[in-house]
Amino acid sequence: MVTRKRYSLKTREGKEALTGYFFLLPALLLLGVFLLYPMGAAFYYSFTDFYILRPGEKNFIGLENFQMIIGDAEFRQALRNTLYFTFLVVPIQIAVALGLALLVNKKLKLKVFFRTAYFSPVVMSLVVVSILWTFMYNPNEGLINEMLGLLGIPPQPFLTSPDQAMNSIIVMSVWQGAGFQMMIFLAGLQNIPDHLYEAADIDGANTFHKFLHVTLPGLKNISLFIFITITIAAFKLLVQPMIMTQGGPLGSTKSLVYHIYEVGFNYRDVGYASAMAVVFTVMVLTITIIQRILVKEERG
């Protein structure tokens, strides 16, 4: 429920609202033209039979595209795969990223080196590391099986097995992406005032207590940000399966966005792809709103 307020330019609220919009307006205008307008177009297409090769004839077909989603077995499989990926990647990656951030936030020599090292997979771009890991996951002559061999573990099929392919992609994704969230956590850690730690020291708190009672609360808003953006990013899984498995074997790594991409790109069915994109966006937005309700923000 929104409380009704009267906004008049003379009141304090009125002035604040005006200032608020002044700050927001440039971004809003740009987003409106270059994102919301195209989004509106995509929304409109989702009710049409827009086919790329016939851009002139977009017939309104009502909910037909949306009804098609219900009977689309590939969509269902892609949804299952995407949920599996998201539910595993999100908690693991947040934990790894936070761990790394705490490590490199210490006052250490070589701090910049370590930060840069952990961050480097992010810089290398998902494409490059996907190619590299595909080589490494090769069941016959890949580096990982060579190393497992040293430990006496038999060679694994990895990307060529419907059972292992998605897990292999998850491991790589965490490794590749954690440095990114580490950097954001790190920036968040800088925002926690030193005096809180000093106060905790005086109270005789140990490291764990300080983490629990100073660090975590201080990271609350940024954690919410990371939680939400990492979930969104996980739902948008595309590059890894595209490069590493082409969605296979047997569709076990086909993600939702990959399916949308294929239908729109390769099969040129913009109408249907748009409908799936609409469903996708509404679905993830709902999850995001639930996340925001679950984790309450704090205001400074």
């Binding site: 948008k236 966005v257 994109a277």
Partner: peptide
């Protein structure tokens, strides 16, 4: 942030 950029 959510909408796949491919869609637009």
């Amino acid at each position: 942030l959510i909408i796949p950029p491919e869609s637009i």
